[in-house]
Simulated scan of single mutants.
Amino acid sequence: MLDRLVLAHLGAVPLAKLKPIVVANWVGALTDQVSASQVRQAYRLLSQIMTSAVDNDMIPVSPCRRIRLPRLPESHPEILTVAQVNQLAARCELGDHVLILLLAYGGLRIGEALPLRRRHLDVDGGTVLIAEAVTELPGGPVIDTPKDHHRRELPVPAFVVSLVSRLLATLPDDPEAFLFPGRQAHTTHRQQSYHGFRRRFTAAAAAADGLSDVTPHDLRATHATWVADSHGVMVAAHRLGHANASVTTRHYARAVDGRDAEVAKHLDKLGTEPAPRSGTQRARRPRKGSP
């Protein structure tokens, strides 16, 4: 991102001449070329660099201030039922089957699931350690720490752990072995690509009833919705690795259909119909001059 979006446009500009208007023009140019999400990520990276320059007395103040950034589009994820997730997973072979269940029942980002290694899985404890994430870049995949550098240990359902054990039995007995290795002979030493999984996922979704528009990212939103509905938004945010629960509600968790009717029934049990006032009310005297 530094090479492609920042240095390609601003690399030749001296620090002292990097003014807010230059940054604003750069943001405007990027907005016409890439997604709003990438523009915001690139701006955040530049802002971090400029803050470092200020801290090291290279410039007196950061030029990244009061810059209008493009708005992120509203996300409307498809929330699946348990039966739909099972239907989707059933159309996949073991590796993709396990990956789909980890996304739906663990809430992992796809970039966190693909680089999982044997050492990240505690079968006896029933947990997955989220310690790495892969990013697909033009020069190839890069494995680094998860988003916001937030490691987390994630308990997963026992039936998912059982399937993970079956998958591990087919892989090398090496702590560094990938749970989802590349499919070709010369790529088994690295994680499989997202694009390959996405093609197989799309084919499985198209074969399932009513799931043709579902994406892998919808499974993370599905997990957030299930957990928020049963255990609250704060628990869902923790499982998804969000420091702020507002991110969970804004982009992932959605209200489960039918809950409004259940709320009305619950309130009906709590309340009682107030009795009307007994007795006959005295008629008011008309004011002077009124008919």
Rank of each mutant, 00 (worst) to 15 (best):
R183Y: 06
A203N: 12
V22T: 12
L5K: 09
M234F: 09
I100D: 05
R117S: 10
F197A: 02
L102H: 05
A90S: 15
R68N: 11
L80T: 02
A228V: 02
R284N: 12
A104C: 07
P60Q: 11
V156Q: 03
A53T: 05
T81C: 01
L114Y: 07
H217F: 01
P286R: 15
V39Y: 01
R200Q: 12
K19W: 08
R117D: 03
E176P: 03
A221G: 02
P14C: 08
D55I: 00
A133W: 01
L167D: 11
Y105W: 15
R183S: 15
L15Y: 07
G232E: 03
I100M: 10
F197N: 02
R239A: 07
L69G: 08
R118H: 06
V160S: 10
P141E: 03
S165H: 13
S47I: 00
A228N: 04
V164R: 03
L167C: 10
P115G: 11
L45R: 09
A36C: 09
A177M: 09
A12W: 07
P274R: 15
R282D: 12
R254A: 05
H150L: 14
L219S: 06
L2W: 11
D124P: 00
P20A: 10
I21S: 15
D55R: 15
L18T: 06
A203F: 01
V227G: 05
T249W: 04
L45Y: 04
L30Q: 07
G271M: 14
V85N: 02
R254F: 06
H242M: 03
H186S: 15
H149S: 14
G28E: 06
D96G: 05
P172N: 11
S230A: 14
Q281Y: 10
H186W: 08
R166Q: 15
R287W: 03
S212F: 04
L163I: 03
P157R: 09
H217S: 09
F178I: 07
R166G: 13
S278K: 14
L15A: 14
A207M: 10
L45K: 06
R282T: 13
Q84H: 08
A185N: 10
C64S: 09
V98Q: 02
I100N: 06
D173H: 14
A29M: 11
E78D: 12
